[in-house]
Simulated assay, not measured.
Amino acid sequence: MTHHTQPARRICPSCDGFATAAITLGGRDRHGHLRTITVHCPACHGTGTITARRVREGAGA
């Protein structure tokens, strides 16, 4: 019986797969916790992967 494999996911070239980062705002709140914000990669919208582009035959020729 044959086994079908999934194609490898393409890693986002903008963030190299590290799509979300926590950035400290400096200082701490009144409970002693660091104040941070979460930022997502604008190219892949926080997924870390991009979709494969389809090449159309005969386009641009």
Rank of each mutant, 00 (worst) to 15 (best):
M1T: 12
M1G: 13
M1C: 12
T2Y: 10
T2M: 10
H3P: 02
H3A: 11
H3F: 08
H3W: 09
H3V: 15
H4P: 02
H4W: 07
T5V: 07
Q6T: 11
P7I: 03
P7F: 00
P7Q: 05
P7M: 00
A8I: 03
A8N: 06
A8E: 10
A8L: 05
A8H: 06
A8G: 05
R9Y: 08
R9K: 11
R10T: 08
R10Y: 06
I11E: 00
I11C: 00
I11V: 06
I11Q: 00
C12T: 09
C12M: 01
C12P: 01
C12N: 06
P13C: 01
S14C: 10
D16A: 15
G17M: 01
F18Y: 15
F18S: 13
A19Y: 01
A19R: 02
A19Q: 01
A19W: 02
A19G: 13
T20A: 10
T20R: 14
T20F: 08
A21M: 15
A21E: 15
A22I: 12
A22C: 13
A22H: 14
I23K: 10
T24N: 11
L25R: 11
G26I: 00
G26K: 03
G27H: 04
G27P: 00
G27L: 03
G27D: 03
G27Q: 07
R28W: 08
D29K: 04
D29W: 08
H31P: 04
G32Y: 04
H33V: 09
H33F: 15
L34G: 08
R35N: 07
R35A: 03
R35M: 12
T36V: 09
T36Y: 10
T36W: 07
T36C: 07
T36P: 01
T36A: 07
I37R: 05
I37E: 03
T38Q: 09
T38F: 09
V39E: 00
V39Y: 07
P42Y: 13
P42R: 11
A43V: 08
A43E: 13
C44H: 04
H45E: 12
G46P: 00
T47E: 05
T47W: 01
G48K: 01
T49R: 08
T49L: 09
I50Y: 01
I50C: 02
T51H: 08
A52H: 05
A52E: 11
A52F: 02
A52Y: 01
R53A: 14
R54C: 04
V55F: 06
V55E: 05
R56I: 07
R56N: 06
R56Y: 02
R56S: 07
E57Y: 09
E57F: 07
E57D: 06
A59N: 10
A59Y: 12
G60Q: 09
A61E: 14
A61K: 14
